[in-house]
Structures are given as C-alpha cells and as structure tokens.
C-alpha cells in the first residue's frame, strides 16, 4: 500500500517526502482547492519545484483541484489543470464532471484521480468516472465500512485510496452546504468549511462561547480548551437531548485497521491535514511509514509505533466500523 501525505507548503512537501511518503498531495493558492486557507498552498512555480524535489527522491506529487468550478469562471480551474500538467505532476485529483471532461480531453496521458469530494461510494459511480474520463484511482468517501470497501475493490479495476488519519467529515463529502448555510462560504464553491473569517470566541467570566456566522457552536467552562467551531462537531439542542448531535469533536485514526485495509485490496492510504504544521506532518508520516512498511512486508506493526498523534483530540474509526452509523 502507498502512503499519501498532505502538504500545505513547500517545506511540508519536502518534510513529507523525506519522512517516507510515497506520494504527496497539494493544491494551488486559490479557490480551485478545497483547503483554500490563508497562508497555505502553492504557486505554479512552487509546485514545479516541489515535483522536481519529490521525483529526485522517488516520490509522486498529486495536485488537488477539488472544488466545483464556478459557472462563468471555468478558466481559473482549467488553468489549474494546465499548471499541474506543466509542473509534471503525477496526477490530478478532481471532483467536478465538467472539469474531468476538460482534463481527459486535453491531457489524456495525465493520471486522473477521483476526489473524495465526488463521493463515489459504490462500483457504479466509480465506473462512470473510469468509463467516461479514464479515472485511474478513486478516493472513497468516509461513509463505508471495511467489508464494503473490500466489495468495491473486487468490483472495480480502479485503484482505491482511503483516508486513515486526520480530520473527519461526518457528512458525505462534496455534498454538504452546512458551512455556506451559516456563513455563505462552502467547501464545494470556496474551498473552505466553517471559515475562520466567520468565527468568534466570546469570553464571559472565564467561560467561552464559540460562534460561526453568529450561531453558537459550543460553550466551554472556565479552563476547558475551546475547540475550533467546525459546524458538524458542534454542541446543539433538540427536544430529545443536548450534545454533539452529529459527531463528537473527534478525528479519524484507522491505524489499527491497516492489515484489514490491505486485505480489502486498498491501493493507497491517505492522511488528512494540509493545514497542519510541518512538524506534525513529519511525525505522522514517519509513524505511518513504519506501520505501513510493516504491514506491506507481513510483519507485525511495531509496538508503540501508533501512539496517539492527534494532539489531545479523541479518535474514532468513523464509518469503517459499521456501528458508527
């Protein structure tokens, strides 16, 4: 299995490559990219340098152009595909049907990966992208159990990539407009979710209230760390209960499932976190490198290799465990 790692900056890209990533994914510094955060991402020149660095060390670079192009402004997204091709990227990761059609026609030799944002959750949906756009790999949405993933790999010739670590979308990816309902800005259109520009923290008597677009997302007692108000991990009230209605503030850690995912026929394992620091990337990549190499070689995962890395957060196996649903 390949290890695919995030890079929000050129220095994170080099760190991930040096720590043993088989592939690094990144995006451009604009709304073509679903991690369109201030201070992150690559210019076309930085991408070309990053690709050259990775190739010298035998690693690949995958470029995520994974928002849905705005009507009447397709050129920005076409240029992103052009720039990725010019930089000699190893693949582009797309979610929009129209953009896939452009890429498949303009760059038939370029590897096309179906982004998680396309939420292709079954063999028929995958077949559409393979037959129509010659997709070579699909990143599965985080809605499937391990046996369901195994059924998909058996039913398709397309390579399958799955997330194993980091932030967890609770909703089917690419099919969520909770963020834009509250703020006007969405992952699909703007490449942001619960954007910092719309976040406030209000402190009264030591307690903190976090808000997004004016909606209270959570309240914290004095001394309790105030988590970032990601909408689907907020605390809300219903007639039945008050609490984390959608999901607790957890992140995904599927390290213990690596042997099962290998057996399920998964080609590549993906780590979330292009917004994370270089040091974090280095640590997570090194840890997963050891574990995956062990699994690939049929050895036991070294004890202690998978100590919690998620910076104080609790972890979940998410939909990989069926009862999560």
């Amino acid at each position: 299995m390949e290890l695919i790692c995030p890079a929000g900056t050129p220095s994170s890209l080099r760190a991930a490559v040096d720590a043993g990533a088989d592939g690094v994914y990144c995006g451009f510094r604009n709304e073509t990219n679903a991690r369109n955060f201030p201070g992150l991402n690559f210019s076309p020149e930085e991408l070309a340098e990053g690709v050259a660095y990775a190739h010298r060390r035998g690693a690949k670079v995958l470029v995520a152009i994974n928002t849905f192009p705005r009507a009447g402004a397709l050129n920005l997204w076409f240029e992103a595909v052009d720039d990725a091709a010019r930089a000699k990227a190893d693949a582009i990761i797309l979610c929009d049907i129209g953009l896939m059609a452009y890429a498949a026609e303009t760059y038939p030799e370029m590897r096309l990966h179906v982004s998680v944002q396309a939420a292709a959750a079954n063999p028929d949906a995958i077949r559409l992208y393979v037959d129509e756009f010659n997709a070579k790999r699909v990143v599965l949405p985080r809605v499937l159990s391990v046996p369901e993933i195994a059924r998909i790999t058996r039913a398709t010739t397309c390579e399958v990539e799955v997330f194993v670590f980091g932030g967890l979308c609770v909703m089917a990816e690419g099919r969520c407009s909770l963020s834009s309902f509250a703020t006007g800005l969405s992952p699909n259109m703007n490449g942001v979710c619960s954007p910092a520009s719309h976040v406030t923290y209000e402190e009264t008597g030591g307690s903190v209230v976090s808000r997004l677009g004016g909606f209270t997302i959570n309240k914290f007692a004095p001394g309790e760390p105030a988590a970032y108000p990601t909408l689907c991990k907020g605390c809300f009230k219903t007639g039945l209960a008050t609490g984390y209605i959608f999901e607790d503030p957890v992140s995904l850690d599927a390290a213990t499932l690596l042997p099962g995912l290998k057996e399920a026929g998964v080609t590549a394992l993906k780590i979330e976190g292009r917004q994370r620091s270089r040091a974090y990337i280095e640590n997570v990549v090194r840890t997963f490198r050891e574990a995956i190499s062990a699994v690939n070689e049929g050895r036991a995962i070294p004890a202690g290799a998978l100590q919690p890395m998620s910076e104080g957060q609790s972890n979940t196996l998410g939909a990989y465990r069926k009862t999560w649903r």
């Binding site: 985080r142 809605v143 609770v170 909703m171 089917a172 099919r175 969520c176 689907c232 209605i245 649903r325």
Partner: peptide, 17 residues
C-alpha cells in the same frame, strides 16, 4: 444541506442505524 452514512435520528434515540 447534507447527507451522511450516519443516522442522526437513530443516534439521538441511542439506537444504531
């Protein structure tokens, strides 16, 4: 606004999907 593999009604009623 969103669709999920998880059933929030079941979760609120402490049931599985």
């Amino acid at each position: 606004l969103a669709i999920s593999a998880r059933c929030y009604h079941a979760r609120l009623h402490k049931l599985t999907k």
